[in-house]
Amino acid sequence: MTKALSIRGLRKTYDNGFEALKGIDLEVSQGDFYALLGPNGAGKSTTISIICSLVKKTAGDVHVFGKSISEEPAEAKKFIGLVPQEFNFSNFESLWDIVRNQAGYYGLPKKLAEERTEKYLKKLGLWEKRHNAARMLSGGMKRRLMIARALVHEPKLLILDEPTAGVDIELRRSMWDFLREINGQGITIILTTHYLEEAESLCRHIGIIDQGQIIEDTNMKVLLKRLQKEVFIFDVVGELPDEIKVEGFDAHRVDEHSFELTIDKSVSLNTVFERLSQAGLEITSMRNKANRLEELFVGLLNQGGAKA
């Protein structure tokens, strides 16, 4: 089956000599929900901008549903919907005009363009504001406007570059639901985000890019299985001593009512609680110290840095 996205040997060197991409290879299957992660300046946005023809590649090939962005740019572009990181619409135009015009740029006939504009403004909860100038919207609404605009020509591949940056939790969750829904309808989604919880919750595959190179490209479940140890924080009744000793575990005091414990994945929680009871600790609650993916992510980047 043709890949939704196929990247081979992609390189980008900017005029100032900065090598943003050092020959990356990447494939995203049709219908996938793919997370492209990496620290700031790793090359995520450059990759996305090249796919969407906003930045010119120095070398390599990019195919979108089998169409080369160099040789058949119009055909390739029809498949893509982009939600960029920065707001990039006219502040003085109405929401209706912004989305309606985008449909026109893709050659949608008037009736269909208006139907789609109405459909996506309603879906993204912006219909009541359709006559407002875009500058009047809140940050979250502006993000939703960009999603509506990206979907109006009904692309097969939706690329979201940090779509939930600066969005409150409630709105972020509702955007997740929406993205799951459209992915369920068959739209392939590529997502870059700094919220690793978001990637873990939404995506089936993950690529990690660092210093212009793909350092990991795998299934999310496979990646998470690699996590050997997790750190949990426990809250206790009463005040903790300065030094905590739990047989077989590495424990550190966080404050007078909580401590952290590193637990190997092979050890059952029953054993953990048994040992905690033996140590005379009465537990009231426990939680992950960090997101599981975050731990892996940091670990992989550190390995990459060590190799470099």
């Binding site: 969407c52 023809s53 906003l54 740019p73 119009a74 055909e75 572009k77 029809k78 893509i80 982009l82 960029p84 920065e86 707001f87 990039n88 619409f89 006219s90 502040n91 912004i98 015009n101 985008q102 740029y105 893709y106 050659g107 605009r149």
Partner: peptide, 18 residues
């Protein structure tokens, strides 16, 4: 220039228009 300044020129650049 306004489209460049506010970056909505990207609406056009990502579209399939020649």
């Amino acid at each position: 220039y306004g489209a460049k300044f506010q970056r909505f020129i990207e609406e056009i650049l990502v579209s399939p228009m020649s």
